[in-house]
């Protein structure tokens, strides 16, 4: 039995391209050991000789233990992963981190704001809320351009059960929305039947911070705004130190923080 630093084998069972330099991966257990995870948690993938990196669950492990990830090729590890094919075995550790506060979201008007590659960490919670039946939930998805969008299949499934607005810095045709997600919040509120009572966001920090401040100004309490942060998460167990945020380690206390928690952590140091 391997301990907390040693990966276990998993098999890549499905791969397809999904957006700019991005691929959709499905993984399945090799030994038959399944694990469970909660929306917003993450795991690590290890490729022998290339190291290890953290990724979010696009979908949680199903009854057979299969789960998915959407991965963009940005560095050495992801480049090696993109060389892998169907059936290849790689290393896995997880699940790590906290999760979206589902129990505080059910039955509330929830607005999800995603930017670019920030959509995958929101996918599992979107699945859950959009099929709840009692939770009005909407998604505003902002990207630089249509080519940057990911999760084509997932978005088309969500379209059937919830309002989605997709906006671009540089749209490719006239019918598309332009601007940032915050330019379209009123339109989304109209679709949800009122102002959002909870915000979930993941994307560039500049975008998430602007979204949080926008809704604070509109009288949403800071404990009703949750952001998923990206940090360099090496070990996943709060030891290696790389993902610090003030006195917190994002891999164990995060990656999801309420705006109330973030304000406190950010006030601890001047930077």
């Amino acid at each position: 039995m391997n301990g907390l630093m040693t990966p276990q084998l998993i098999r890549i069972s499905e791969i397809y391209d999904d957006g700019e330099a991005a691929r959709h991966f499905t993984f399945e257990p090799v030994s038959g050991t399944r694990h469970s995870a909660r929306p917003g948690q993450f795991f690590t993938l290890a490729i022998p000789g290339h190291g290890e990196a953290a990724f979010t669950y696009l979908s949680l492990p199903d009854a057979q233990g299969r789960f998915k990830a959407l991965i963009r090729r940005v560095g050495a590890l992801t480049s090696a992963l993109f060389e892998c094919g169907h059936g290849d075995l790689i290393g896995f550790r997880g699940p790590f981190g906290n999760s979206w506060p589902l129990e505080q979201l059910l039955g509330k008007r929830v607005l999800i704001i995603a930017g670019g590659i920030g959509l995958p960490p929101l996918a599992a919670v979107t699945d859950r809320l959009s099929t709840d039946g009692n939770t009005p939930v909407g998604l505003i998805y902002g990207c630089r351009s249509p080519a940057e969008q990911v999760l084509k299949h997932e978005r088309s499934a969500w379209h059937a059960s919830m309002p989605i607005l997709e906006t671009f810095d540089r749209p490719s045709n006239k019918g598309q929305l332009t601007g940032t997600p915050l330019d379209h919040t009123q339109q989304m509120s109209a679709k949800l039947g009122g102002s959002p009572e909870a915000i979930l966001s993941c994307g560039p920090e500049v975008m998430m911070n602007a979204a949080a401040r926008h809704f604070i100004k509109n009288n949403l309490p800071p404990e009703k705004i949750w952001l998923a942060l990206e940090r360099r998460m090496h070990c996943g167990v709060g030891e290696c130190g790389h993902c610090y945020l003030g006195s917190s380690t994002v891999c164990t206390d995060g990656p999801i923080y309420s705006w109330q928690q973030l304000i406190r952590l950010q006030s601890q140091t001047t930077a």
Binding site: V74, E230, R231, R232, G241, H242, L245
Partner: peptide
């Protein structure tokens, strides 16, 4: 580079 991410984003 202690906190630098693959994207180049560096919080410190």
């Amino acid at each position: 580079a202690f906190q630098r991410e693959a994207s180049g984003h560096n919080p410190s």
